[in-house]
Design a protein around this nucleic acid. Structure first.
Length: 150
DNA sequence: TCTGTTATTGCGC
DNA sequence: GCGCAATAACAGA
């Protein structure tokens, strides 16, 4: 399967995606970019038009990745829902601190919905910009609410 | 190898 | 409120 690279503008940030088929290998952020195709499901998700990115998955879920247990648990969090670092830590028998570490080193944010993991009191963090996390959570909340109404 | 660094939390003061 | 330990992967030296 051929590896492809694309970019999508989201607010003030560009989201760069590297993928092959339905497996996403890398997601990164930068201030500048140039429009280039990304997987359709991801684009619709970022536009707030669908409540998920199925069938896309991440290389980080492959079992030989160090934090894969944490990543698998995080990817189970449904659209529009948030969990805390400590909840993930309890399930994976690790430490909340380590969960934060895993999120920071997440090679594919969005695909692994690390923005749905928040601190017990507060939002937690996000690299490179907390505003991205806030926008994503706000967008998900709005869209899931509109689904309930219809 | 060894050390410093995390997107945290809960407890003691 | 503040300081600190728990705890494991990783980068850089």
């Amino acid at each position: 399967m051929e590896m492809r690279r694309g970019a999508f503008q989201f607010g003030y940030w560009w989201i760069h995606v590297t993928w092959a088929g339905t497996i996403v290998h890398k997601v990164s952020f930068s201030r500048t970019g140039e429009e280039a195709d990304i997987p359709l499901q991801l684009r619709q998700y970022l536009n707030g038009k669908v409540n998920g990115i199925s069938p896309l998955t991440s290389v980080a879920l492959e079992s030989d990745y160090p934090y894969s247990k944490i990543y698998r648990e995080v990817s189970k969090i449904p659209y529009g829902i948030t969990k805390t670092y400590s909840e993930i830590a309890e399930i994976t028998k690790t430490n909340p601190r380590l969960v934060g570490n895993a999120m920071k080193r997440n090679p594919t944010p969005l695909i692994i919905p690390c923005h749905r993991v928040v601190a017990k009191e507060g939002i937690g963090g996000f690299t490179p910009d907390i505003e991205i996390k806030k926008s994503l959570l706000l967008m998900e909340q709005k869209f899931s609410k509109s689904l309930n109404l219809s």
